[in-house]
Design a protein around this nucleic acid. Sequence first.
DNA 1: ACAACTCGTTCACTAAAGTTAAGAAATGCG
DNA 2: CGCATTTCTTAACTTTAGTGAACGAGTTGT
Lengths: 192, 192
Amino acid sequence: MQDALFGFISKYVQLTEEEKNAIISLDIFHSVKKGTVLLQEGQKSKESYFVLKGCIRTYYVLDGEEKTTAFYTEMDALTPPCVVSKTPSEYYVSCLEDCILLISNSDMEVVINQKFPKFETMCRVLSEELLAKQRIDFDEFKTSSPEQRYLNLVEKRPDLIQRVPQHQLASYLGIKPQSLSRLRARILEKKG
Amino acid sequence: MQDALFGFISKYVQLTEEEKNAIISLDIFHSVKKGTVLLQEGQKSKESYFVLKGCIRTYYVLDGEEKTTAFYTEMDALTPPCVVSKTPSEYYVSCLEDCILLISNSDMEVVINQKFPKFETMCRVLSEELLAKQRIDFDEFKTSSPEQRYLNLVEKRPDLIQRVPQHQLASYLGIKPQSLSRLRARILEKKG
DNA sequence: ACAACTCGTTCACTAAAGTTAAGAAATGCG
DNA sequence: CGCATTTCTTAACTTTAGTGAACGAGTTGT
């Protein structure tokens, strides 16, 4: 499991054995059961998550309804906005499946960044990449219809269609569950 | 004008006079006329922009139609995804108004980051903040209707309503210009 | 001054999403 | 296993966005 992490890191910086051991000694690998709520609305947190296995989702509860806005799967990193802004969280984070997560603390990161400037460089590059990627996702979302978004999702993250409940996918696509059902039926009709 | 920049930077790191002079000597301040295209689709670029005055917009041309996806105004920073991914740009960047911009080059940033680790820290923190802010914007977009998005925009960026043409605002809101017209009429009707 | 364009609005019509409700299928739990 | 809950689908109806066309106001260029 650590190999997956160091394989990921090696795309950004080369770590020495000493540095790898420093990371391992932080004891940041965690197994988390499906359904576990990692972060609640209103809660303050300093934790960031890196998914080694499984899937976590973020969702808001608005007018008593869950609105799922993102899914994080293998090799995805999530630092909730509340960690950055140091304010109570606006949303929930929970495990959709049994997960193996790397959970880090922002205080800890400050120490690591001072000790290993390499690490800070990696975080900067990673943030910049995520920002660019998310920008493109947002732009695609804005410039396409719900149907196109769904087809785009089938194309780009087919695994989500399988592992995520429809009603969560629906809000991820910015529509109601009934509309997703209908839209899927419409697509099937067109094909056959 | 430089004061605005250093005022912004001081929120993240404290610069010495020497460091400030180093930045000024880079000669990165530019006046740009309204309508200037800073980046074209298909073009490779290493430039990032920081808006000191004016407004720039990013847009795609899809099926011959302009789709505006973002506006950057005073104290906003834009690093186009193509700069990060080192691939040809998917979109255009142009000046909506006469602008004073800080234009930096990613090669230059590498040098600066090595010389002044402080600067890299600032870039990391800034990226993390922008990522979190954009995440919230995206979530709000997903969880609201076009009408709510418009009202939200009036609330949060009232200046845009004034300085940006309607048809550009429309695609920014993910709808057609006609729908924005109608939606505005609907809102006025409800009020009075 | 005039033609050509752009921009915003309006209208009639079509298509698609929201809403409400009902029921079938799958899942979880005692 | 069987009951309850959740999840997914379908349907009828309402609301809203997309489409194509037309119009007037404002701009640009000659």
